[in-house]
């Protein structure tokens, strides 16, 4: 599994892990994010069971196991958090931050040791040593209880499934040409995202944030002007296509 540092400062750094060449073609490719600060670290959307081994091996290049103090699950999907039962044994003293709505469901993945810290609908924040991260509500995009993670210092928005692209092979880490990237995103957003109302509400709130990088859970990361282009495109897109 590849790992790429996308942000680094005196206080903390962001690393994206993904593009696992050993991964079966039949499972969707995912981006996992590691944020480390001093002797603490959080994994955002740690991934599915199938990715646990390469994830663990890759993470240990960047962080000591005992320093992984927190996990975050944007929602309940298996590609997000079905590895929980294994992390529960690897980092038993960690805390999982996840939507309150999904607690009874996510616990089905097996959680005997890790502490489940429910995130309220209105969001919240967590400190990872010197880094402060905000949980931004993104309900119904696509899950009914769903959060993004915003880092005001790094100006990175981990947007979960928003901005996701289904692109085969090992695409580059960043979106280079927005127009040619649309074909990888359009069906996903029209089909997986159920609500135009939720979409517009999210766009208006995100426009108030300073976002240099928008980092989705699948596909390439949006940087600089690409973030603005995405918001413009998403605002125009009619979602909930299965009801047409």
């Amino acid at each position: 599994m590849k790992s790429t540092e996308i942000y680094s400062s005196a206080t903390h750094s962001w690393i994206v892990l993904g593009r696992d060449s050993q991964k079966s073609e039949s499972i969707i490719d995912t981006n996992q994010y590691l944020i480390k600060s001093a002797d603490e670290a959080i994994i955002l959307d740690p991934g599915g069971i199938e990715l646990f081994s390469p994830m663990l091996a890759s993470l240990l290049k960047h962080v000591k196991l005992e320093n992984i103090t927190a996990l975050f699950a944007s929602h309940q999907d298996p590609d997000i958090i079905s590895s929980l039962g294994l992390w529960d044994k690897a980092v038993p003293h960690a805390t999982l931050y996840a939507p309150w709505l999904w607690e009874g469901f996510i616990r089905h993945f097996g959680i005997d040791n890790i502490h489940y810290q429910p995130i309220k609908d209105e969001g919240g924040e967590v400190k990872i040593a010197k880094a402060t991260l905000k949980f931004i509500p993104a309900h119904y995009l696509h899950s009914s209880g769903n959060f993004n993670v915003y880092d005001p210092k790094a100006k990175i928005l981990m947007s979960g499934d928003i901005g996701a692209a289904l692109e085969k092979g090992e695409p580059p880490m960043f979106v280079e040409d927005f127009a040619s990237h649309i074909k990888y995103m359009e069906y996903f957003h029209r089909r997986w995202m159920p609500s135009n109302r939720a979409k517009n509400n999210w766009i208006s709130r995100v426009r108030e944030l300073e976002v240099d990088m928008m980092a989705p859970q699948h596909g390439r990361i949006f940087k600089g002007d690409m973030v603005h282009e995405f918001l413009e495109w998403f605002a125009r897109l009619d979602v909930g296509s299965a009801c047409e």
Partner: peptide, 10 residues
Amino acid sequence: QRLNTAFEIT
């Protein structure tokens, strides 16, 4: 089993 696979990687 998953740890054994991870150990084979690193």
